[in-house]
């Protein structure tokens, strides 16, 4: 994995003295280029008082970045871009880990790993770390299902909404908006991480139930909503579909109708 490339190859840092500081510059440049403007002046603004021209010039010497005349149109060399992308990737993934896994408010420093509700995610982390048995303080870590199975590969823990089966419920993991304006609508409909949704139909448009209201979504929007695989369940207590054994085909409407009737008579 990319993170490992960076963190577990110390010689990478040793090759360039002051690697940490340089990396700051690479990250800053990457973000500036993403925003669409990059000049030496703005780099100064962004890095504040820590800015040293020498470090920037050494980056140019290393062949990682290029600079136009008079400090405008800064850019990466292909190698520099690759380095920066890796940095940004590991940085943001770490943030994701802290926010999603360690309990949210990372500004406040209140990380609560033990409150993770999604076992699949804990198992994924456990597998990633090679099923460790003790914590850094030497205390035992109770083995999980994954340790017993001694799983070696990390299974994907989120799937897009489009892969749910009709009638299944699941907890939203991530929501991505294709346009900025969409965020407000999604937020307004409470289509946000942590909410339980239920898929009512998937053709010709996706109809989901969230917070007691029904929402129709086009496939492109539905594909941008990711749910925890582990959280998928059928409301009538059936197990989530095991991968590999497809659900029986045909008479879907009959079964569903039957279920509707049965549930209807209960309440």
């Amino acid at each position: 994995m990319h993170e490992q490339d960076i963190h577990f190859h110390p010689q990478h840092h040793r090759q360039h003295a002051g690697g940490r500081a340089k990396e700051e510059y690479l990250e800053a440049l990457w973000t500036m280029l993403y925003e669409g403007r990059a000049s030496l002046e703005e780099l100064k603004k962004r890095l504040g008082s820590g800015f040293k021209l020498g470090i920037w010039q050494s980056l140019i010497m290393d062949g990682l970045v290029t600079q136009g005349s008079e400090g405008v149109s800064l850019d990466f060399t292909p190698e520099g871009r690759q380095r920066a992308e890796k940095l940004i990737r590991s940085h943001r993934l770490a943030e994701r880990l802290i926010v999603d896994v360690l309990g949210g408010a990372y500004e406040a420093g209140a990380c609560e790993f033990e409150h993770i509700r999604h076992e699949a995610l804990v198992d994924a982390i456990c597998t990633l770390l090679g099923h460790p048995r003790e914590c850094p303080h030497g205390l035992p870590i109770p083995p999980g299902e994954c340790c017993r199975r001694a799983a070696n590969a990390v299974k994907r823990s989120v799937i897009p909404l489009t892969q749910l089966e009709v009638g299944q419920s699941a907890v939203i993991a991530y929501v991505y908006a294709s346009r900025d304006g969409q965020l407000h609508i999604l937020e307004g409909l409470r289509l946000v991480p942590g909410k339980v949704i239920r898929l009512h139909q998937n053709r010709p448009v996706y109809v989901i139930e969230i917070e007691e209201s029904h929402v129709a979504l086009e496939e492109t929007v539905a594909a941008n909503i990711q749910v925890w695989l582990d959280s998928c369940y059928w409301e009538d207590g059936r197990n989530p579909p095991s991968q590999g054994s497809p659900r029986p085909r045909g008479f879907g409407w009959g079964r569903r109708w039957f279920r509707l009737l049965r549930r209807g008579s209960k309440d």
């Binding site: 209201s213 929402v215 129709a216 086009e218 492109t220 929007v221």
Partner: peptide, 9 residues
Amino acid sequence: ADFIQELPT
């Protein structure tokens, strides 16, 4: 195709 519509009760 980025249509989102709440269906009425």
